[in-house]
C-alpha cells in the first residue's frame, strides 16, 4: 500500500519534471544548447499564473496567460540571446544561459520581492481517493492528467500537422529541411515557444501544489532537467518523458529508504551516473 502511494507520488513529481524537461529537449534537439535559463521561464510562468488568478479568480485564464507569456519570453530569449552565438562552441551558450538565469532569478526577487507570492485562496486543494484508498490532492491528480493530455496533443501535432513534421525534419537534418523550403527560423521560434510554454504550464502546477512561487524556485529544475534529458538520451522526446517519470519514482523511494544516506539530488545523480556508465547514450536513446 505504501509502495503504491510512493509510486503515485513519484509520478506526480515525475509529471512536473516531464513538463519542464520536454521543453528543454525540444530546444536541445534543435540547437544543441544546454538551456539552463529554461528554468527561469518556469518561474515566470508560475508568477504570471498566481498573479492572474489572484486578480481574476479564473484558473484557465491563469494557465493560458502563463503559457503565452512564458512562450513569448522563450522566443525572445532565443532571438536576443542564443541566435547570435549559435556558431560559437557550446560552452559559450551554456555560460550565457547561466548568466541569464542568475539575472532572471534576481530580477524576480527585485521586482516581486524575495519572499515570493501565494494564492490568496488556492484552488484545487480538495481530496480525491482512488484505487481503494490512495489519496490525492485534486491538483496532484490534475497535474498528471494535464501532462498526459498535453503530451498526447504534442505527439499528435508533431506527426499529423505540417508544422510538426517540419520541426521533426529540422531536428534530424537541418540542411536537408532547409533545402525543402522549411524556414529554420520559424521552426526554431515555434520550438522555443512550445517548449517555454510547457515550462510556464509546469510553473503554474507547481504553484498550485506548493502554494508558493519564489524567485529561486527554478534553481532545482535548472539542473535536474538537464539530468533528465541526458538520462533520456538527449533530444529524444519519448526518452525524456520516460526518464522524468522513472526519476520521479526513484526519488520518491530514495527519499524514504535512502534519505539517511543521501539527499534527493544526490540520489537522482547517483542514479544518473550509474545509468550513464552502463549506457553512455542514455537510458532510452533511440539513436
Amino acid at each position: 500500500m505504501l509502495a503504491l502511494e510512493l509510486v503515485a507520488q513519484g509520478l506526480v513529481q515525475g509529471s512536473i519534471y516531464a513538463l519542464i524537461a520536454l521543453g528543454l529537449t525540444l530546444v536541445y534537439g534543435l540547437l544543441r544548447i544546454l538551456h539552463v535559463a529554461h528554468a527561469a521561464l518556469f518561474t515566470l510562468g508560475a508568477y504570471v499564473g498566481v498573479m492572474v488568478y489572484n486578480a481574476t479568480g479564473n484558473l484557465p485564464l491563469a494557465f493560458a496567460l502563463a503559457m503565452v507569456v512564458a512562450g513569448l519570453a522563450g522566443v525572445a530569449t532565443f532571438r536576443l540571446a542564443y541566435q547570435p552565438i549559435l556558431s560559437q562552441p557550446p560552452f559559450v551558450a551554456l555560460i550565457a544561459s547561466i548568466g541569464l538565469y542568475i539575472a532572471a532569478e534576481e530580477t524576480f526577487r527585485v521586482v516581486f520581492g524575495a519572499s515570493g507570492l501565494s494564492f490568496a485562496t488556492p484552488p484545487l486543494q480538495g481530496q480525491v481517493a482512488l484505487f481503494g484508498g490512495i489519496q490525492f490532492k485534486t491538483a496532484e491528480l490534475m497535474v498528471m492528467l494535464g501532462t498526459a493530455l498535453i503530451i498526447a496533443a504534442l505527439g499528435w501535432l508533431q506527426t499529423r500537422t505540417r508544422v510538426g513534421v517540419a520541426c521533426q525534419a529540422t531536428v534530424s537534418d537541418p540542411q536537408m529541411a532547409e533545402s525543402f523550403g522549411i524556414s529554420l527560423r520559424k521552426v526554431r521560434d515555434i520550438n522555443f515557444f512550445v517548449g517555454s510554454a510547457l515550462a510556464g504550464f509546469a510553473g503554474v502546477w507547481v504553484a498550485l501544489l506548493n502554494n508558493l512561487v519564489e524567485p529561486t524556485m527554478g534553481s532545482v529544475p535548472s539542473y535536474k532537467a538537464l539530468a533528465i534529458i541526458v538520462l533520456g538520451g538527449l533530444g529524444s522526446v519519448r526518452g525524456t518523458l520516460a526518464a522524468a517519470l522513472v526519476l520521479g519514482v526513484v526519488e520518491a523511494f530514495g527519499t524514504i529508504y535512502l534519505g539517511k544516506l543521501l539527499d534527493r539530488n544526490a540520489i537522482a545523480f547517483a542514479f544518473l551516473i550509474l545509468v550513464l556508465m552502463l549506457r553512455p547514450q542514455g537510458l532510452f536513446a533511440t539513436r
Binding site: 544546454l34 539542473y223 538537464l226 539530488n265 544526490a266 537522482a268 545523480f269 544518473l272 550513464l276
Partner: peptide, 14 residues
C-alpha cells in the same frame, strides 16, 4: 561533451 558535462555535475551533487 554534454553527457560529460552532466555526469561531472552529478559527481558534484553526489
Amino acid at each position: 561533451a554534454d553527457f560529460l558535462a552532466v555526469t561531472t555535475m552529478g559527481v558534484g551533487f553526489l
